[in-house]
């Protein structure tokens, strides 16, 4: 089969053949895009131009997009989401990298530590997590017991608007496992010879980290940065099951607001418009990161 396909394109130029082969490799994904993803995307876009509750629709053009400019909750949700992204992504990545570097080498018990530290990430966004987190940061929770030692008065960290968002940031950092796994696989692709050479030159641990590990790992850091940023912008479940957007809308993430508009207020059209705005915000940030990446990402292969 594969040979047959190859023969068909064999007459073309080297580059031309490469083109066609590339599309063979991409075929499953491309077909998937057209069959499974394109239609829901188009539908959500056309809905964003309507006033609709899914069942009764009225064409309103750009009205939804105009409306969101003066929507105070929407603006609040952008602020909350940005704050969350800027806090949680760097913290999570730094922590994941730190742990991955420690667990890179083989030593007694390393498999246990890797698995144990990965454990929290497995729990996902279930009801059990919600109960656990609410309890932990609640008035009678263990966090209050711990800070009580330092003389800090107990409070409901989740009900207090000045701390609620941070509890969700901590939850995000706590579930750092996916990034750690990706860092681990990246770290092991750094040739050991580089470290050996540096050690002979007498480079300190810190120097080796900054001069070998970081640059060699930069493509993976870029990947994690992009994907965690996209993921953080779309944070929903944690707020949905734990804080419901409150208190004082301090945890009203954009996607939570979109969900409320879509399913509580039955304004599917408006929710779709919000979603497309979110898409462009995320796209802008992603492209910005990718643009800057040529200054700090090092590809050995190119």
């Amino acid at each position: 089969m594969v040979n047959m396909l190859k023969d068909r394109f064999a007459q073309g130029s080297r580059v031309g053949r490469n083109n066609m082969t590339a599309f063979l490799f991409l075929a499953p994904w491309l077909i998937g895009i057209f069959v499974f993803t394109l239609w829901p995307f188009i539908t959500s876009f056309t809905m964003s131009l309507q006033e609709t509750n899914l069942f009764v629709s009225k064409w309103v053009g750009l009205e939804n997009y105009k409306q969101l400019l003066s929507d105070r909750r929407f603006i609040k949700s952008i602020q909350v989401t940005l704050k969350f992204v800027f806090l949680s992504v760097p913290l999570k990545l730094a922590f994941a990298l730190f742990v991955a570097v420690m667990l890179k080498e083989r030593f007694r018990g390393v498999n246990f530590f890797r698995s144990a530290l990965y454990f929290p990430s497995l729990i996902g966004g279930s009801v059990a997590v919600a109960a656990m987190w609410t309890q932990l940061f609640g008035l009678r929770g263990v966090i209050n017991d711990v800070v009580g030692i330092f003389g800090i008065r107990p409070r409901s960290w989740i009900a207090d608007p000045s701390t609620a968002l941070y509890t969700l940031v901590i939850l995000a950092v706590w579930q750092f496992g996916s990034s750690m796994v990706i860092f681990l696989s990246g770290l092991n692709n750094i040739p050991q010879s580089l470290y050996e050479a540096a050690e002979i030159d007498g480079a300190s641990r810190l120097r080796r980290f900054f001069h070998i590990t970081l640059p060699m790992l930069s493509p993976i850091i870029l990947f994690n940065l992009v994907l965690q940023t996209i993921g953080a912008f779309q944070t929903f479940t944690q707020a949905f099951i734990i804080t419901k957007g409150g208190p004082l809308n301090e945890t009203l993430f954009m996607v939570l607001y979109i969900y409320n508009k879509a399913f509580t207020a039955s304004e599917m059209g408006y929710a779709s418009a919000l979603s497309w705005v979110l898409l462009f915000i995320i796209l802008a940030f992603t492209l910005l990161i990718l643009r800057t990446s040529k200054y700090w990402v090092y590809y050995e292969a190119e």
């Binding site: 919600a130 109960a131 656990m132 609410t134 309890q135 609640g138 008035l139 009678r140 409070r155 409901s156 989740i158 009900a159 207090d160 608007p161 804080t243 409150g246 208190p247 004082l248």
Partner: peptide
């Protein structure tokens, strides 16, 4: 006060149960 009530629910964060 709201700083305690705002997340009152009927399980993990229920003021009545606590």
């Amino acid at each position: 006060p709201v700083g305690i009530s705002a997340m009152n629910d009927f399980s993990a964060n229920s003021l009545l149960l606590q």
